[in-house]
């Protein structure tokens, strides 16, 4: 254990602290005295160094870097601030050591030890933050998938799949599976795919939609693409996407009319009074 370095850090605490503050102000002029939320009196810089010290002073009995990182994260400062803060801290410590240690052999060794003190903090910091990010992203992804692609039976033999949001390959796969399973489950003869909520239709999205409708045709049903907005129509034509082989309608309403026609039905108004249909 690089105890000598720890001893230096302990003994020269005031000196290091001041130098660190000064350097941080140079490095990050935008946070000269960064105030984290909920901290009215003391500023985050003080807290930051405090936390580092608490960790370093206890490093002999516990090596729990994780705890330390948790404390740092609680300060609610931006991650780049933490990383620069740690780097500056290391540099300051090295300078302090350089001033008091004359023997070059020793100096080199102490440098290395300083590195060893700061390194695990860095590693853990990066590990923890990336883990948090990845977790958040995967949670969001699965939530998105849940909202992703419901197939709703609206009338006997007619179902609608409203699509909202961007379609990527993973989602397209899910859409396809839900679509086909839904067609089988509901005995849908006509499926309306409503793309009103799809912001962008590029070649890839179009390709997925075409594939889906092709698959729907294979299981013995029919696909109608509805909800094509003017700008989507422009993109489709400008990109040269061929949607010739399957029917499109501007709105869900038109789509339903067409679907009724295909299934040989129609909506009629019951005239009041004579009760005739």
């Amino acid at each position: 254990m690089p105890k000598v370095v720890i001893k230096y850090i302990k003994d020269k605490r005031k000196e290091i602290n001041e130098a660190w503050m000064r350097k941080m102000a140079e490095e990050l002029p935008e946070f000269p005295n960064y105030r984290a939320p909920n901290q009215n009196l003391s500023n985050a810089n003080d807290n930051f160094v405090d936390v580092i010290y608490t960790y370093l002073l206890n490093i002999e009995n516990t090596d729990d870097v994780r705890d330390f990182i948790k404390k740092i994260m609680k300060l609610e400062v931006p991650i780049n601030y933490l990383s620069i803060g740690l780097q500056v801290f290391r540099r300051v410590v090295m300078e302090v050591i350089k001033r008091s240690e004359k023997d070059p052999e020793n100096l080199l060794e102490l440098y290395e030890h300083t590195d060893r003190v700061v390194e695990p903090i860095f590693n853990q910091l990066i590990k923890d933050t990336t883990e948090t990010w990845e977790r958040t992203i995967s949670i969001q992804k699965s939530e998105l998938l849940e909202l992703s692609a419901p197939l709703i039976p609206i009338l006997d033999r007619i179902s609608v799949m409203p699509l909202v949001g961007t379609i990527d390959t993973e989602r397209a796969k899910l859409i396809m599976e839900n679509l086909l399973q839904g067609v089988i489950d509901h005995h849908a003869e006509v499926v309306l795919i409503d793309i009103t909520g799809v912001p962008v239709v590029d070649t890839m999205v179009a390709h997925h939609i075409i594939q889906a409708s092709e698959a729907v045709r294979l299981v013995g049903s029919k696909c109608i693409l509805v909800g094509i907005r003017p700008e989507i129509a422009q993109t489709i034509v400008n990109l040269g996407i061929e949607l010739d082989q399957f029917p499109t309608k501007s709105s869900l309403q038109r789509g339903i009319e067409e679907a009724l026609k295909i299934t040989e039905r129609k909506v009629i108004t019951i005239t009041e009074g004579n009760g005739k249909q």
Partner: peptide, 20 residues
């Protein structure tokens, strides 16, 4: 007339580019 094509089969067919 082909009937009763299952979803999995339909997906494979379209993925393989077999248009039928």
């Amino acid at each position: 007339v082909l009937t009763g094509i299952r979803p999995a089969v339909a997906i494979i067919l379209t993925d393989l580019g077999i248009r039928l």
